[in-house]
Design a protein around this nucleic acid. Structure first.
Lengths: 156, 156
DNA sequence: ACAATACTAAAGTCAAAGAAAGTCAATCGG
DNA sequence: CCGATTGACTTTCTTTGACTTTAGTATTGT
C-alpha cells in the first residue's frame, strides 16, 4: 500500500470521529510514517484540496502546525452545494442579487448575511479597472465562497 | 504551546476582566514565563500593535513599566476611520481578516456579518488569475463597501 | 544645599540561531 | 508514462542574548 494512501486514511480517520477539524504536526506525522515531510504536503495537495471539500491552514516556525477542515457535509449543506453548482464560472450582478434574495427567502441566509453578500457583490465593490468577464468570474467565486461559509457555519 | 501565545493570552486575560488597560513589568513577566525579556517586546510587536487595536507605552529605568491599552472607539467613528484612513487602496488578506475580527469583537458586526465578510475576502474567494496588487485593490473596495452597508443598516 | 557625576535598574534594539512548514525539480516504481 | 517519493533549498515565525538607552538613586565636590 502506498504511503500517501495510509496518510490520507489516517487523517480521514481523525476527521471522522469527533470534530470536522484536525490539527497536526507535519514533522511528527512524517516521522510516524517514515517518509519525507514534504510527502505530507503532497497528500494535502492531492487529497485534501478545496475542490475535494477540505481547507487547510498552517503556520511555520516554532510551534508550527497544519490544520485541516472538512467543509463538505450533510443535510442543509447539500442545498448549499446545489446552489453553488448552479453558479458557474461567471455571474452577473443581477443574477447574484437574485440568488442572494433566494437564499434569504428560503431561510438559508439571515438578513444580515444577505446584506453583506449583497454589498460584496455590488457594482460599487467591484469598481476597479477590470474587464466585465473578470468581474463576472470574481462575482462567481466570491459568492461561492460566501455560500460555502454559510453552509459551514452550522457545525464549524 | 508557544510561549508567545501564552504571554499573549495572559495579557489578554488581564485586559479582558475589568479595565481596558494593564500595566506590567517586563522582567517580572519574562521571569514568570521563563523566557528572555526581549520576548515580551516580540509579543507586543506581533500581537499588540496599533493595527490590532492596542497602544503601548513604557518607561525604562528604575521602576520602569509597560502599559498596554486596548483602544476603544465608538461604532460610527471607528467605521469611518476604517473606511477613510486605515483601509487604503490596497489591503492584504491578513489585514482584512484582522479588521473584520475587530469589527466583530467590538460589536459593530455580528458573527453572521463577520462570517460573510471574512468569506468574501478570503484567498479562496479571490482565487482568480489576477496580480496581487489587483487583488489587494479589490479587497480594499469590497471591504469598504461592506462596512458602508453595515454603517447604513444602523441609521437608515 | 546644589549641581554634577557615578551607579543601578529598568526597558529597547537588533541580529543570529532555531524551529517549523513550503516549494520544486529530480528520481523512482508500477 | 504517470503518480508517488525524496531531499535540497526557501520562507516564515519564534526565541535568545549581547549591547544600548533611559530613568531613578546615591555620592561627591564646591
Amino acid at each position: 500500500m502506498r504511503i500517501s494512501d495510509s496518510i490520507e486514511q489516517f487523517i480521514k480517520d481523525m476527521l471522522g470521529e469527533d470534530s470536522p477539524e484536525v490539527e497536526l504536526k507535519r514533522n511528527e506525522l512524517a516521522e510516524y510514517f517514515g517518509c519525507a515531510p514534504s510527502q505530507i504536503n503532497y497528500v494535502l495537495a492531492t487529497r485534501f484540496s478545496p475542490s475535494q471539500g477540505y481547507l487547510t491552514e498552517s503556520r511555520r516556525g516554532g510551534g508550527g502546525y497544519i490544520r485541516i477542515v472538512r467543509v463538505v457535509e450533510t443535510g442543509p449543506q447539500k442545498m448549499a452545494y446545489l446552489v453553488r453548482d448552479r453558479i458557474g464560472d461567471q455571474l452577473s450582478e443581477e443574477e447574484a442579487q437574485r440568488i442572494i434574495a433566494h437564499l434569504k427567502d428560503s431561510g438559508m441566509a439571515n438578513p444580515e448575511e444577505a446584506g453583506m453578500m449583497s454589498a460584496a457583490l455590488s457594482a460599487r465593490a467591484l469598481a476597479v479597472p477590470l474587464s466585465p468577464e473578470m468581474k463576472a468570474a470574481l462575482r462567481a467565486r466570491i459568492l461561492k465562497t460566501m455560500i460555502l461559509a454559510l453552509a459551514n457555519k452550522g457545525n464549524g
